[in-house]
Design a protein around this nucleic acid. Structure first.
Length: 240
DNA sequence: CGCCAGGTGGGAT
DNA sequence: ATCCCACATGGC
């Protein structure tokens, strides 16, 4: 079976099983007041129009930094703290001592490094006018920023700027490996090329696909896989 | 208790 | 180029 057909089949199965995931979550701490802010707030299934406003865009950028090698629940706590303290804004982050930012984002882990990363990306956001409509952000310019690697860059391009860059993360690698689509480990861009060369470059498709992979990885394709209920079981080589 | 979570940069080899 | 490690919290 051709790779493109296979990738599309996997997508269709995941979408049928799990439904649209509503990424990237956009938290509204006013609206979610009274609800448990630490659970799944902010998802907007079927709406690929978000983020729309600059403050929503910036929130996704901050989330992309904070979630580096970190559980999303911890990121929500950090975003909640930033919001409560009126720090979820690039100009304010630049005017605020890194110590203060670090303390607010403590639950997300690596808080000293991430405070520095937030300062750097806030600076770029303002200087390069990312918030302006029709601003075209280059991948290479994102990668120049200390603290922005390939996955974070692609997350921002895809989920903030709605550009068709497929996000490759540890879950994606694991899935491709277990499905037998790749044998030996590849470089980031090689994984990405598998998707870019075999799917139509549609940001809504890439958005949903990556979110569905994460969804599968959380419930079934874990480090210790639970294959009995996996929707891809029939298409995945057995493991001993 | 140990392991893991929507990675990245820096230094040694 | 590739490997190894520091960075750090909270949930299970």
């Amino acid at each position: 079976m051709a790779l493109s057909s296979r990738l599309i089949m996997i997508y269709d199965i995941l979408l049928a099983r799990f439904g649209p995931q509503g990424w990237w979550p956009i938290l509204d701490f006013e609206k979610h007041k009274g609800l448990d802010p630490l659970t799944d707030c902010g998802y907007h299934p079927g709406n690929y129009d978000l983020p729309k406003k600059p403050d929503q865009m910036f929130q996704v950028i901050v989330g992309a930094i904070l979630t580096q090698n970190t559980n999303w629940q911890n990121v929500v706590k950090a975003l909640f703290n930033l919001s409560q303290q009126k720090l979820l804004d690039p100009e304010i982050i630049l005017k605020t001592e890194a110590k203060v930012i670090a303390e607010a984002i403590r639950p997300s882990g690596y808080y000293n490094e991430k405070a520095k990363k937030l300062r750097i990306i806030s600076q770029a956001y303002l200087e390069q006018d990312w918030y302006k409509k029709n601003h075209v952000l280059k991948r290479e310019d994102l990668l120049k920023l200390w603290g922005v690697g390939e996955e974070t860059a692609d997350s921002i391009l895809l989920y903030v700027f709605k550009r068709p860059f497929f996000v490759i993360d540890a879950y994606t690698r694991r899935l491709l490996m277990r499905m037998g689509i790749v044998g030996t480990p590849l470089k980031y861009r090689e994984y990405q090329d598998l998707f870019h060369s075999n799917l139509r470059p549609n940001f809504e498709l890439f958005n949903e696909y990556h979110a569905l992979i994460v969804r599968l990885a959380k419930s079934n394709c874990r480090n210790k896989p639970i294959c009995s209920t996996c929707p891809l079981k029939r298409y995945c080589p057995p493991r001993h």
